[in-house]
Design a protein around this nucleic acid. Structure first.
Length: 489
RNA sequence: CGCGGGGAGGAGCAGCGGUCGCUCAUCUGGCCCAUAACCAGAAGGUCGCCGGUUCGAAUCCGGCCCCCGCAACCA
């Protein structure tokens, strides 16, 4: 059986999840559910990245311990996954002991010549506890967060990773699609970045700055791993790396047919440049595909706390339900670029597509079905059958390219076709019971297939439809349930 | 000259060399199984501006204007 491993990125937990995180979770979930339905052996990982220095500062601001702080926020992410009905198999936290040990093992496995110590010298802001480049500062040479505070020139010794050594290899890897980056725009972006020349990057921080928060460098008690170095490792530590006997690691990393990372555009460099190089250095297989989605803006603006336009996805779910949010993210946000979220648009989509489209089609077919009672299972009309096959093919092909918005569109094309058929055949006016039942049967078949196609996208709704169509031997009976999506307002 | 994306009817998008297409909203007609839903049809655009290539350009080339991202710890 073909093996398929996929992951979401593990978000930072210095704040609660916003609607953008929901986009990535839902997209990854659609892939996972779709591949499972195609009888692939799927393993789906999500989790949280908790070892960043910034968590220390954020926790301090709220006056709680950093452990408690990250646990709280990590919990919020896990709850969001649940509320969205995401079907992940594991949720990893990078503060897990297992993960930390795994990250250290990856460090140890890294080729000796790739890790070296170097002195770093830069402008350091005591307030922010971070380095700044001179062009990031204002005219007086101060950071925007702490005006009036002079930056200090600080010198520290860090470990560096010899990324430069992998320049040619990475370029070939990506150009040849052995590591496939979707969409093309992102592939080109990364190639342009590589062609400019790769610099070695710092992979550790002195413990004075991290206060011991994070994963310590093996045999170097005074150094903490750079948070990205440990974070990226989550994709394999979750599977049991480095334990040689770890079944999951063998199955879903070492010998998997597909290793897919679903990530946002802001972190593509880490995933398509650093991460493959780190794995290569440690002699491990690299990912096969990386899908880079765009960002969700709200009212056309970038989501940011300072703008105060952060939308809490759990609020949307509470008000409209999980499937309507899933639908909006998948249909309204173009898969390859940024998309906008507004409540107005959500309500428009809800009424037009979910209530009037899907919901109403289901209601009229089920009502007709209930009228005729038991229907004989027969071959569906050729025309209908072909239409169903055609739309299923479109759905599958578009999904393989991660074009969620176009993929889900195929289902609505089928619904449209079903609606036309109802108007055209007028089953309610057919006199003979047999003829009437036969006409309705074709409509039920369409609805049934709509449910199957809908399953990866709107699992709750798909299940409701499936429940109301009862197949038993050579007859099928239909039970009209409540409204799938009551119209708003 | 830092890199990239984009400017299309009221809104959002597909098209990327051959009569501007789709969805939503609007109007008219049909239907009455259905959630004032569904079906058919209509109206609405000089495809950012200027110039060029071409028999022919939203589509290719050059210039300009305007938005928006990224620029090595943002999904």
């Amino acid at each position: 059986m073909e093996r398929f491993y996929l992951t979401t990125a593990i978000p930072y937990v210095n704040a609660r999840p916003h609607v953008g995180h929901a986009l990535e979770f839902v997209e990854a979930d659609v892939i996972a559910r779709h591949e499972r339905s195609r009888k692939k052996d799927v393993y789906f990982l999500s989790g949280t990245d908790e070892n960043a220095i910034k968590n220390l500062q954020a926790a301090e601001k709220e006056g709680i311990s950093v452990e408690k702080f990250v646990a709280q926020n990590s919990g919020a992410f896990e709850e969001l996954l649940k509320a969205l009905n995401v079907s992940h198999d594991q949720f990893i936290r990078t503060t897990d002991k297992k993960h930390k040990a795994g990250a250290q093992a990856l460090w140890r496995a890294t080729a000796k010549e790739d890790l070296y110590k170097k002195t770093y010298r830069g402008l350091y802001c005591i307030g922010c506890e971070q380095f700044y480049e001179s062009d990031e500062l204002n005219e007086r040479g101060e950071c925007s967060e702490h005006p009036g505070k002079k930056l200090e020139t600080v010198e520290e010794e860090n470990y560096f990773f010899k990324l430069s050594r992998y320049e040619g290899w990475l370029r070939e890897l990506i150009e040849s699609d052995r590591l496939k980056i979707v969409p093309e725009v992102r592939k080109n972006e990364i190639l342009a970045f590589i062609k400019k020349g790769l610099k070695d990057f710092s992979v550790s921080r002195p413990i004075q700055r991290t206060h011991g928060w994070g994963v310590s460098v093996p045999d170097e008690p005074h150094q903490t791993m750079y948070v990205w170095y440990d974070a990226l490792a989550n994709y394999i530590t979750a599977l049991g790396y480095p334990d040689a006997g770890a079944e999951l690691f063998k199955k879903y990393w070492a010998k998997s047919d597909v290793r897919l990372h679903v990530i946002g555009k802001g972190i593509s460099r880490f995933h398509t440049v650093y991460w493959p190089a780190m794995l290569k250095s440690a002699g491990l297989p690299i990912p096969t595909v990386e899908f880079v989605h765009g960002y969700v803006t709200t009212d056309g603006q970038k989501i940011s706390k300072t703008l105060g336009n952060v939308i809490d996805p759990s609020e949307i779910i509470k008000k409209y339900g999980a499937d309507p949010l899933r639908y909006y993210l998948l249909r309204e946000i173009p898969a390859y670029t940024d998309g906008d979220f507004t409540f107005r648009r959500l309500e428009e989509r809800y009424n037009a597509d979910l209530a009037n489209g899907l919901g109403n089609f289901a209601a009229r077919v089920l009502a007709l079905g209930e009228q005729v009672g038991d229907m004989a299972v027969a071959r569906v009309e050729r025309e209908v059958d072909e239409k169903i096959k055609e739309e299923k093919e479109i759905l599958k092909n578009k999904l393989e390219e991660f074009k969620f918005h176009e993929s889900i569109g195929a289902i609505w094309d089928l619904i449209k076709c079903g609606d036309e058929m109802v108007n055209d055949k007028k089953p309610w006016a057919i006199e003979g019971r047999e003829e009437k039942a036969a006409a309705v049967f074709n409509l039920v078949a369409i609805l049934d297939n709509v449910a199957v196609m809908l399953n990866p996208f709107l699992p709750e709704t798909a299940a409701k439809i499936t429940e109301s169509i009862q197949w038993s031997g050579d007859t099928v009976r239909v039970r009209k349930g409540g409204l799938l999506f009551p119209r708003l307002k």
